[in-house]
Simulated scan of single mutants.
Amino acid sequence: MPKIAIIPGSTRATRFADKPVQWLMQAASARSDMDVEVVDLRDFPMPFFDEVASNAYAPTSNEVAVRWQKKIAEFDGYIFVTAEYNHAPPAVLKNALDYAYPEWNRKPVAFMGYGAVGAARAIEQLALICVELQMAPLRSAVHIQGGDFMAVWQGGKPIEELTYLPPLAERMFDDLVWWANALQAARGQAAGEKPIPDEEPPVGEAAQ
C-alpha cells in the first residue's frame, strides 16, 4: 500500500491551509488503498537554500534539511496543499522542494489549491518544478476558489458544504494511487536490474 504525504505549503501563523489539509486528510483516511500522513513544513524550519549544491551532487550540511530529506524519502507520492502568492506558490514550499532531489525522483504528486483562482497559477508553476525534480505531476486536482474560498476563509462556511469537492478529491486519489503503485513497482524493478556495460566484451573473452 503506497505511503502518501500531504504537505501544507504555508507556515504562516494565520495560514488557511489547516482547513483544507484537515478535510483532505479525513477524506483520504476513509480509503483503504493508501497510507496517508501530514508532513508539516513548520516541523522543518529550513533556512533559505544555502548549500554548495543540490543534494543530487553534494551532501546537505543543514541538519534540519537532512531530516527533511529522510522524511520525504519515506513516501511513494505527495499531495501539496498550496496557496497562491502573487501568481506563484509560497516561497517556503519552493525552498523545501529545492532542499531535496533524489528523494522526489520518479514519484507522483497531486495538488489541492485555494485562493481567488483556486491557486491554479501556483499549481501550474509547481507542476513545472516537479517535472525538473523527475516527479510525475498529475492532471487531477482539487481547487477551492472565488466566492467559495472567501466564504470558508472569512465567512466561516464549513468546507463540507462545498459538495463538488469530494468527487474531485476521489478522482485525484484514484490517479495518485494508480501512479504511486505503478512507479513504486518500476522503481523496484530498476533497483534490481544489473547495470548494462558501455561496451560489448571482446569476442575471445565472451565465454570467460
Rank of each mutant, 00 (worst) to 15 (best):
A141I: 05
I144T: 13
C130W: 03
M135N: 10
L128H: 09
K71N: 05
M135Y: 09
N86H: 05
I129G: 05
E161D: 15
E84P: 02
I79C: 00
V152E: 00
A136F: 08
V142G: 11
F75T: 00
E160M: 01
K71P: 09
H87P: 01
D98V: 06
N86Q: 05
V131L: 11
Y85C: 04
G113V: 06
L138F: 13
V64P: 07
G156Y: 01
A122I: 02
E161C: 01
A110W: 12
P158A: 04
D148R: 10
L97H: 06
Y101T: 14
Y164W: 01
I159K: 03
A136C: 09
P102V: 06
F75Q: 04
E74A: 06
V92C: 08
Y164R: 14
R121I: 06
L97N: 08
C130I: 12
E160N: 09
N95W: 12
K70T: 11
A141F: 05
P102N: 10
Q145P: 01
F149S: 04
Q154T: 14
I159W: 09
G118D: 03
V142A: 10
A91L: 07
A83N: 11
Y114V: 01
Y99W: 15
K71L: 08
A100S: 13
V66M: 15
S140H: 06
E132P: 05
E103F: 06
L138N: 02
K107Y: 08
L97S: 01
K157F: 05
R121C: 10
F149W: 15
A136H: 10
E74T: 10
A151F: 13
I159V: 12
G146R: 05
E124H: 08
G113K: 00
A100T: 13
G155S: 09
G77D: 08
P102Y: 14
F80L: 14
V81L: 09
A91H: 01
L126K: 01
D148F: 12
A116F: 07
P89H: 04
A141G: 11
Y78K: 08
P108I: 07
G113Q: 02
A100G: 11
D98C: 01
H143S: 12
W153E: 14
D148M: 11
G146E: 07
Q145M: 11
V92P: 02
E124N: 13
E103Y: 04
I144H: 11
G118C: 03
V92L: 02
W68P: 11
G146L: 11
A127C: 11
A151K: 15
L162W: 06
W68E: 05
V109I: 14
Q69G: 12
W68V: 01
K94D: 04
D98T: 00
P158R: 00
M135Q: 06
P108A: 15
H143E: 08
A119S: 02
I144E: 12
F75S: 04
I123A: 00
H143F: 10
A120C: 14
G115S: 03
P108G: 12
K107F: 07
R106D: 09
K94T: 02
Y101G: 14
G146A: 14
G155K: 07
A141D: 02
I144R: 11
G147I: 14
Q69K: 10
P108Q: 07
A122C: 03
E161V: 01
E103D: 12
A88N: 08
I159Y: 09
R139E: 08
M135C: 13
A73L: 06
I159C: 08
T163F: 04
